[in-house]
Computed example of a mutant assay.
Amino acid sequence: MYLTKSITAIGVSAALIATAGFAANHSDKAASEAVSARHAQMQLIAYHTGILGGMAKGETEYNAEMATAAATNLHAAAGFERSTLWLEGTEQGAVEGSRAKAEIWSDSEGFSDAFMALETASADMIEAAGTDLDALKAGMGAVGKACGACHDDYRGPKN
Rank of each mutant, 00 (worst) to 15 (best):
V12P: 09
L3N: 13
N159W: 04
S98A: 07
T84G: 14
T131H: 04
H48C: 01
A70M: 01
F111A: 14
S106H: 09
D124W: 06
S83Y: 09
M55V: 05
N73H: 14
M66F: 05
G97W: 02
E88V: 14
T49D: 02
A146C: 08
D132V: 11
A15F: 15
T4Q: 09
D134T: 12
T120C: 01
N63L: 03
V12S: 09
Y62I: 00
S13P: 03
A56Y: 02
A76N: 08
E91W: 08
L87I: 11
A146P: 01
A31S: 15
H75E: 05
G89V: 13
S106R: 11
M125V: 03
E88T: 14
F111M: 13
K145I: 05
G58S: 11
G53S: 12
K158N: 07
A129H: 09
A128P: 00
G139K: 10
T8M: 04
S108T: 15
G11E: 03
M125H: 02
Q43D: 15
K5C: 10
A135N: 07
G53R: 04
G141P: 00
D132G: 03
K29M: 09
G130E: 13
M42R: 08
V35W: 06
A149F: 03
E59L: 07
R38E: 07
L85I: 05
E65K: 15
E96C: 05
A20Q: 06
M125Y: 00
G21W: 06
L52A: 02
E119A: 02
A102S: 12
A114S: 14
V95W: 05
L52K: 08
K29Q: 12
V35D: 05
Y47C: 00
D134W: 11
A146L: 08
S83L: 02
S13E: 00
E127I: 06
A20V: 08
A129C: 04
V95T: 15
I104A: 14
M1G: 15
A71I: 08
G89S: 11
M140H: 04
Q43T: 10
A138S: 07
S122T: 10
A15G: 11
Y2H: 08
S27N: 15
A102T: 05
R155K: 15
A76E: 01
M125E: 10
I7K: 07
A102K: 14
G58N: 07
M125W: 04
D113Q: 12
M42G: 02
D153C: 01
T84D: 13
